[in-house]
Design a protein around this nucleic acid. Structure first.
Lengths: 186, 186
DNA sequence: TAAGTTAGTAGACGCTCGTTTACTTCGTCA
DNA sequence: TGACGAAGTAAACGAGCGTCTACTAACTTA
């Protein structure tokens, strides 16, 4: 009954990348082991380092994949607080929406990859957000918004999908929209 | 020149506890090793488990120590947003103010201590904060405030003490105060 | 079909982790 | 003074980690 494995370099590479993205998002950098990635990808552990060099470089490649977040920053400026609010509310109830952001906030305490995370937060959130803001202290306001976004991830991790299960989705979005308005206005 | 160590059970226990509090706040649960705690406390590694049982139980004892945060929630209700804003602004510039909170947000991805952290966030922040709020969705508003507080810790960890070094301290506090007002009002 | 390239595999390497055991030394009190 | 309890110590345990090497077997090409 043993299935004979077909050789497929690109396919195997992709399976490893997919498994790593899922696991890093769920568990964070430290708690994902090479053997766990290999098992989840149904691939041999030695192939991970052959295709990606090291665990650190694999994480860097996962993080470099664009998540959904860039979509939030596009579009008209007036709807930005609302789109940020929807993004945060989505993250709070179902996690799967942005695995890259989840991996970022779950791995921020690992010194080995600190630079990778900092660069990605800078280039994907902080800088594009600050560039959209006018008035003084644009970077400060962008930082507070970033804190709220990442904090939502931590909260979700702590309490699970039912972190905010009481109120209706629309009430959460409305509250967050007003907060982001106050946060971002010049 | 070798100093002869005096036997001092309580003193050694306290040195271990202090070292653990510092290290857990700086590095998070996973990246603090028993040997690191022993070296920082200038104590033998075997004494840690003799006095505290295990690394996990030592962490629980560190977390159970009351930090400065309860002071924020006391006092008149009208000044609450301002006090929360000052607390968050303090955390963003100098870290030492609340080691327990720092340890919490830096260890939130460790499944081994998930229950400890969740219980502490609940009893020290979420529930007392929600109890102070009137109107509907008190818990939702408390959760958003908690997300902002913990997110500030993550930001601080990512960017260091200069996370918000541009603007004046007062400007940061003013902005955060307005955000917490919008966040908490019924 | 034979030779060469390369995807895939098994297993070990050196290291660090939390924890534990066996032991030594200090201090106290009969 | 001598015995005993306890504080402190050194070293090892087994397990898990990321990484690497030697090997097998599938596909390609001449």
């Amino acid at each position: 009954m043993e299935e004979v494995r077909r050789r497929d370099r690109e396919g195997t590479r992709q399976r490893i990348l997919d498994a790593a993205r899922r696991l890093f998002a769920d568990l964070g950098y430290d708690h994902v082991t090479m053997r766990l990635i290999a098992a989840e990808a149904d691939a041999n552990i030695a192939l991970i380092n052959r295709y990606f060099g090291s665990k650190r470089e694999l994480f860097a490649e996962v993080i470099a994949m664009q998540g959904r977040f860039p979509g939030v920053l596009e579009g008209p400026g007036e709807g930005l607080p609302r789109r940020l609010a929807e993004y945060v509310a989505d993250r709070l109830r179902s996690d799967r929406s942005s695995p890259v952001m989840a991996a970022l906030s779950r791995s921020s305490a690992s010194p080995e990859i600190h630079g990778i995370i900092k660069d990605r937060v800078n280039s994907a959130i902080m800088e594009p957000l600050a560039a959209r803001l006018s008035g003084e202290d644009a970077r400060m306001r962008a930082s507070i918004a970033t804190a709220l976004i990442t904090g939502a991830g931590t909260l979700r991790q702590l309490y699970g999908p039912e972190a905010l299960d009481g109120p209706a989705y629309e009430a959460v979005v409305a509250r967050l929209t007003r907060i982001f308005e106050v946060c971002l206005e010049g």
